[in-house]
Amino acid sequence: MSTRTQIWLAVGFAVLITALTITATVLSKGKTGQDAVSGSTAPALTETDWTRGNKQAKVTLTEYGDFQCPACAQYEPIMQKLESEYGDRVLFGFRNFPLYQVHKYAGISAQAAEAAGLQGKYWEMHDLLYANQSKWSVMGSEKEVTNLFNTYAQQISIDTTRFLADLDAKAVRDKIQSDASAGSTADVNHTPTFFLNNTQIPNPQSYEQFKSVLDAALAATK
């Protein structure tokens, strides 16, 4: 075998091995959950939290999220499907954990959801923000984003004058700060972060994995 052939074979082999190793690494990461989880605990859901599902449920699932986080937006359809399937047995909660350092509109989007919440339409705004994340997150200024959020406020039929005033209200800012502080105390350092019965769990990687986590928790209550 000539030297030239040997070099080509070695390069081809190296490329193949590298591709296989990388794929195996990524696949194993997907199976085991991407991060080491501390198993830390978060405060239990209370009346001041935004919740959906059965308030009497023995199983709770709390999400710490950021409205501008793409991963949170990708989890949103999974969460909505789980809420419709387990809403009678599980209480789902959402707390703000805006990543101001990496997401320019993390703050204003959380404020928009809280401001809509003051008029009883928190979840409607929450869902709209995630559904339209790709539109507002690339906008050039906070003013443009606020104008767009105002159209969402119209869409969910709330008083837009009050909505715009509430965006900057102390109650709204305090609520976001309180959520974020509780998250930091509970070792949240990425979004979304999930707490099952107030204990942090590795992010399930699919709807099926989430289902089995909830099924196991429900079975444990029987």
């Binding site: 997907g30 991963a71 949170c72 990543l99 990496v102 990425h190 972060t193």
Partner: peptide
């Protein structure tokens, strides 16, 4: 093959 990287405080 993987779900999106979670949004991290660090990057």
């Amino acid at each position: 093959f993987a779900l999106p990287l979670p949004c991290s405080l660090l990057h």
